[in-house]
């Protein structure tokens, strides 16, 4: 679900295209955009407080075999939520190796993007050296 939540709609569409379209499903909760109140802690570790809201879109579906699929992701992309929920159900019920490989590849790409950002941050890390003052 974390991988699907971070994916772009176009990436999910490619996976669905390889599956030959979405399988039959019943929409239990239509894709709906609302907000989630983001909580944080004072000082990072202390009392909880409400930092502000974020948009979130969710969707719940059921496949013909009864498997339920859920999607919850930041943002307002309702079409993506429906596709995510169906894929979430398929990932539980289907042993289609291609599908599982596709999701693993998506996860790898997300990890690589994050690692690249961290490598760029690492390039801005300060290397202190001590200036020698005065003479012996």
């Amino acid at each position: 679900m974390a991988v699907l939540a971070r994916a772009r709609k176009t990436e999910l569409d490619e996976i669905v295209a390889r599956l030959g379209g979405l399988p039959d499903h019943v929409v239990l909760k239509p894709a709906e955009t609302g907000t989630v109140m983001v909580e944080a802690r004072a000082g990072g570790t202390g009392r909880r407080f409400n930092m502000g809201e974020a948009t979130m879109t969710r969707c719940v579906v059921r496949l013909a075999d009864g498997t339920m699929g859920f999607a919850y992701a930041l943002g307002t992309d309702r079409p993506k939520a429906l596709v995510s929920a169906v894929l979430d159900a398929l990932l539980q019920s289907s042993s289609d190796a291609g599908l599982h490989d596709d999701i693993a590849a998506l996860a790898r790409a997300q990890t690589e993007a994050r690692q690249l950002a961290l490598r760029k941050a690492a390039a801005t890390k300060v290397d202190f050296f001590t200036l020698v003052r005065g003479h012996d």
Binding site: M1, L28, E32, R62, G66, T67, M68, F70, A89, Q92
Partner: peptide, 18 residues
């Protein structure tokens, strides 16, 4: 999500919630 797959089927709620 496996825990949800096995539960009895839920009845439907509002068709048009709003």
């Amino acid at each position: 999500m496996q825990s949800m797959s096995s539960q009895p089927q839920l009845g439907k709620g509002f068709d048009e919630p709003v």
